[in-house]
Amino acid sequence: METPLVQFEQLMLPHLDSAYQLARWLVRNEHDAQDQVQEAYLRAFRFFPQFRGADGRAWLLTIVRNVCYSWLRRNRPADLTEPFDEEAHSGVLDSAVDEHARRADTELLTRALEQMPVLFREMIVMRELEGLSYKEIAVVAEVPIGTVMSRLARARRQLQAEVAKQLKIFSDHEL
């Protein structure tokens, strides 16, 4: 008979990379991300008796997300109230930008994603980096699937716009 700890580790430790990835993008700092991942695992272990065995990764990521949001509320409340200024970015989807965006490098994209409001940033992380389904994202973010779809669409537009903006900053500096 395996102990609860062994069971928990077998089910949850394989998702450590996912947990770290989400935390890293939510708190935007490696050191704090590690602290939050550890805290989330401890919390998950305490709640483990309530886990019904459906989707371990989504269950764990829900806790990681909650822990990170608590941390943001305490340490960087401004991160949670960033305005989402879509107007300012309208009209940037022309083909020239598109061509640039195709060549955007990792540094540029990382910066663009980091500057995105957290509610939209997490959509990109869960969908594009972690490959979660809409349903799983809905579980983790605790919103309906319709909201996942609209947030993800806005997040992609925003990311494209951010990349365009960053490219512009770059070329302005180069001039």
Partner: peptide, 26 residues
């Protein structure tokens, strides 16, 4: 856009010491 995102944002692994640290805490 999807191709750019996937190519430009490689999914990094957790830092090497993290598993040991989490296990220790557990």
């Amino acid at each position: 856009l999807r191709a750019v995102i996937r190519a430009g944002l490689p999914r990094g692994a957790a830092l090497p010491g993290l598993t040991a640290r989490v296990r220790g805490a557990l």
